[in-house]
């Protein structure tokens, strides 16, 4: 399987990962090799097979009144104390007046 350098640059843009020229060349090689190996999946017949949605087959059961609490996967819909603004902003790279400051979204 041949993946072009243009493919690599396009996918890097989708993933929002800036690559150097050397990185793009190396990834072109690696991805061609790795996706080549994926071709072997076609040897497994999956014509009548459903894709796995959850590995244990357990349903994610939302809060429902007719079900016992022990079988529900979501916590009760009760107001809980949220994180404080200070906690939320604690790790932000750049804050100003209680807001996160970023560069413009539009040029």
């Amino acid at each position: 399987m041949e993946i072009s350098k243009e493919d690599v640059i396009h996918v890097a843009a989708l993933a929002r990962v800036q690559l150097s020229d050397a990185e793009a060349i190396k990834l072109q090689e690696d991805l061609s090799l790795i996706f080549g190996h994926f071709e072997s999946l076609n040897e497994v017949d999956t014509a009548e097979v459903n894709p796995t949605l959850h590995v244990s087959g357990e349903q994610i059961i939302l809060a429902r009144e007719d079900l016992e609490e022990s079988h529900q996967n979501l916590r009760k819909d009760q107001i809980q104390r949220p994180l404080s603004p200070n906690q939320v902003l604690h790790n932000a790279p750049r804050i100003e007046d209680g807001f996160i400051r970023i560069k413009g979204v539009l040029d």
């Binding site: 843009a13 990962v17 790279p93 996160i100 970023i102 560069k103």
Partner: peptide, 23 residues
């Protein structure tokens, strides 16, 4: 590069900062 973690900080716009931070 906005809410937490490494940020390149400089760039022409938010998207450039994001790509540079991750790169």
């Amino acid at each position: 590069g906005v809410k937490y973690g490494f940020s390149a900080l400089d760039g022409r716009n938010a998207e450039e900062v994001m790509s540079a931070s991750r790169g």
